[in-house]
Structure formats: C-alpha cells, structure tokens
C-alpha cells in the first residue's frame, strides 16, 4: 500500500473582510484540520453537503490556493512533475473550457506547456486522447459552446488525460448532468482508471455515486472529516 499523497492537519481559513479598510473581522474555516492519505491505484471518495469545504479541498490538493497551515505531501516517487502528474476535473462543464478557444487548441495546450510531443505527433496524440473519452475527431474545429454538458466533461477529461497524469481529483464531475449522462461518465471514469492505472479522489455530495466508484469514503462536514469507511 503506497500513498500517492498524504494530507496532514490541513487548514484553510478565509478572512471575512469588513469595513472601509477591509480589516479581517473573523475567519471562515473552510478546511479546519483535515488529515488523510490517498492510496495509489484506488479511488478515494469524499462526500459532503454543499458548503462543507469540498471544493476548497480540491483546490488545495491541486495547489491552486495555498493552505493556511498544515501540508499536503506528494510521494516524490510517484509525482515527479506536479503540474503534469496531478490533474483536476471541475464541477461546472460550462465554465471549465475557454469559450473562445477551439477544442484543438484546448487539447494541445497541455502538450505545448510541457513541451511533451513534437509537432508531428501532436495530431496523433490529440486524436488518441479523444478516442479514449469516446469523442470523434470532428470536435476539434468546434468551440465549447457547441457541446452539451456531458460532452464538455469528456473534453475536460481528454485535456487532463493527455498529460498522462497519475492522480486525478474530480470535484463533483457529474453533478450538473442528467442522471443518464452521469451513469455514462461514471462508467467512462471507471474504464479510464483501469486502462491508465490512475488514482482518483472523487468529491461529491451524492453518496450513491461513491457506492458505484470508490474504494473508500471519507465524510466531510464544516471543514472536518467526521467519518469514513471502506467500500465493501
């Protein structure tokens, strides 16, 4: 049992600014002392109501916001290039894609940023990633607005997976989709995990989803972990 990541006493407080001089008059304790480990190759489910700190936790895991105290230690043997090996899928598919960028540009951006493939292999790599999420190559010339929520989430998945990450954080990835689409994306996620040996951290408010996909579950409320179990 090796850990991809270990969270130790993580805290994130947001100051409440009041008055003309915006002095901090107290704090919102979004995450208030959270510790857990993410096992490699498994799906860790985190369930909580809205406002329990789930999205803040996702952003902390991706180091998009700095913690107030505590730490998130990533296993250096597994995670060698952080922005490549750790990726995230957001909740709102209608806000996760740059509305002015064509799908082709969206998908090659990670490759350009990390200078992974040469110009000749770009097309092949992009098409392969589209195929793995069940999309056709004629989406490449289109803009995000032409796609439904489910299709957009697939594009986001393709964007994240094109970097061949080790760890994928999913923040309510299916909550804004119809139930029938949720099932489809869930099945796709399971397939991808097996195919690419991924580790997932699946955050949601819907416990039934976690029953389907996760190996263990942590319950979060008001910034604290209040319980958990392994999925039988």
């Amino acid at each position: 049992m090796s850990l991809i990541a270990e969270v130790k006493n993580l805290k994130k407080y947001f100051p409440i600014e009041r008055g003309i001089f915006l002095k901090a008059r107290g704090f919102v304790r979004a995450i208030d002392g959270v510790s857990f480990g993410v096992e490699k190759g498994k799906t860790l489910g985190i369930v909580g109501k809205s406002g329990s700190g789930k999205t803040t936790l996702a952003k902390l895991l991706l180091r998009l916001i700095p913690p107030t105290s505590g730490e998130i230690i990533y296993n250096p043997e597994e995670i060698t290039n952080f922005r490549k090996d750790v990726q995230i899928i957001f909740q709102n598919p209608y806000q996760s894609l740059n509305p002015k960028m064509h799908i082709w540009d969206i998908l090659i951006e990670p490759l350009i940023v990390h200078r992974i493939v040469g110009k000749k292999e770009l097309r092949g790599t992009v098409e392969a990633s589209l195929e793995s999420v069940g999309l056709n190559e004629d989406v490449l010339s289109r803009l995000p607005i032409e796609f439904s929520g489910g299709q957009r989430q697939r594009i986001c998945l393709a964007r994240s997976l094109i970097l061949k990450p080790k760890f994928l954080v999913l923040d309510e990835p299916v909550s804004s989709l119809d139930l029938t689409r949720q099932v489809e994306i869930l099945d796709l996620l399971k397939e991808l995990k097996n195919k690419y040996c991924l580790t997932y951290c699946f955050i949601t408010h819907n416990l039934a989803l976690l029953r389907e996909i996760s190996d263990s579950v942590l319950v979060i409320d008001k910034g604290r972990i209040i319980g958990g179990s392994k999925n039988p």
Binding site: L64, Q87, E109, V113, H114, S160
Partner: peptide
Amino acid sequence: QAARAIGA
C-alpha cells in the same frame, strides 16, 4: 483554474 492546473 484549469489552465493553472495544467501548468500554464
């Protein structure tokens, strides 16, 4: 946020 996450 997604752009930051892929390392842009």
